[in-house]
């Protein structure tokens, strides 16, 4: 079980959180203007990379905030977390 550093509450056990999956690009402002290929690419395609990877988490049983968390998918290490809209801290490169 991971220990997750909530930017608002500090390190807490993973059971208090819900993972919202990989953080993708922002939702297009006018989805109606995209063709089917562009829309479905935004909807479904994720990088799913091995290595440092940014995902959204919700502190469901805590402060109720959504935030961003960087985790290395190869060894499950939590690298950093930061509030939505904040500048992300520098992250190690893949395999570092």
């Amino acid at each position: 079980m991971l220990e997750i550093p909530c930017p608002w509450c500090g390190p807490r056990a993973e059971v208090e959180f819900a993972c919202g999956g990989e953080s993708g690009p922002p939702r297009p402002a006018d989805p109606g203007s995209l063709d089917d290929a562009a829309w479905t690419a935004w909807l479904w395609n994720r990088t799913n990379r091995k290595g440092p990877h940014v995902e959204t988490w919700w502190h469901q049983a805590g402060c109720g905030r959504w935030f961003l968390l960087a985790r290395d998918t190869s060894d499950d290490r939590v690298l950093a977390s930061w509030p939505i809209g904040a500048t992300p801290p520098p992250l190690p490169e893949e395999g570092a």
Binding site: A18, G20, P26, T56, W58, Q60, W66, I84
Partner: peptide, 13 residues
């Protein structure tokens, strides 16, 4: 609840 908070906080803050 998770869904509403998610859109309010992450997509349209």
């Amino acid at each position: 609840h998770a869904w509403l908070e998610r859109w309010a906080q992450t997509e349209w803050p």
